[in-house]
Write a protein that binds this DNA or RNA. Structure first.
Lengths: 175, 175
DNA sequence: TCTTGACCATCCACTGTAGACCGTGCCACG
DNA sequence: CGTGGCACGGTCTACAGTGGATGGTCAAGA
């Protein structure tokens, strides 16, 4: 009986259900599919793959060019993934350093703060724009509503954040 | 020249500007002030306090009852905090396991998924309600707009999330 | 008086992040 | 043709963050 999966390992297993992939591939697959709301790093991918290989949830197959090692799910891996999926997902975590800084606004000259705010707003506005584009492309590619739920989450989130920026008290926006 | 602060250590330093506190106090102060968008744990608080004491940014004062040790900022600590504050804050990070599960929806019986969705929606609706209450109380206590920016962020965020839940395709909401 | 619970801290294992580092095959361009 | 640069593919390490177990101490109430 292998120990319980963590969400990162589980997500890798999930992607491997669609066919063998190397760690490198998995990282890119994951970033594309869920990268905005589920970060993961190279180190982590390889760490989890090695651990799962130890536990027999995946097997390393076909060592290709440049140390490339594609992994495939085993039946045990499929079962572990199924079990992980059936547990209630944890709450989301948000860590937003800008809010930290705003909480200490009185220690900072107003102009500096306004500059931070402006830069962050620009980032969010750009992401929002990116989501709009992505939506158009996805629809053009024949995506169903169920395929757009994370994109939709992102759109709503970024919209809310941009509106929050625009509603900040003037002294935080303009210094 | 001490190494650069991380955001967690910096936030502790910030709170200590208002007077000496023990690790225990700091944890509660921080949870109350910034807990919803900046998580931190006991272990971390004590670890950072010890490290900052090593670096001379804080000093342990007045060992009180029950191993209680209140820490106070030093001048060096104030300077380190000021420097940390003046650097552009990093982007926010969001990790939402429910979105991960939704991305693998096709591997899950629809009813189970709908149950998860319903439970998460309830949590967010409750948080939103809590923010509304908190806003009323803060205003009654004479808070200025600038004191409400993080609360406002939370409110807009939770509003967006709840609306997202309500706009999910029917097969994800009802199974 | 005794017990329960809040207070206060320590420690550990695991997970997550960031970046340095290294080799290798591919391909564009001279 | 041949070579130099870049994308690929992976390893390693230090640090940061999470969660739970553990353990002692004081205060208040049964």
């Amino acid at each position: 009986m292998p120990r319980a999966l963590n969400a990162t390992a589980a997500s890798l297993l999930g992607f491997l259900h669609d066919g063998p992939q190397s760690g490198y591939d998995l990282l890119r697959t994951a970033e594309r599919a869920i990268g905005d709301f589920w970060s993961l790093t190279r180190s982590q991918v390889y760490r989890e793959l090695a651990a799962m290989a130890d536990d027999g949830l995946v097997v390393a197959a076909e060592v290709g060019a440049r140390d490339r090692r594609a992994y495939a799910v085993t039946d045990e891996g499929r079962e572990a993934f199924r079990q992980w999926l059936s547990r209630l997902p944890a709450e989301e975590q948000i860590r937003y350093p800008l809010l930290l800084v705003l909480a200490f606004a009185r220690h900072l000259p107003p102009g500096e703060l306004a500059a931070f705010v402006a830069q962050h707003r620009a980032v969010h506005a750009a992401r929002l724009e990116g989501y709009h584009q992505a939506r158009v492309e996805a629809l053009a590619a024949g995506a169903r509503p169920v395929d757009l739920v994370t994109l939709d989450f992102g759109t709503r989130y970024e919209t809310a954040v941009v509106e929050w920026f625009d509603a900040l008290p003037a002294e935080l926006r303009e210094g």
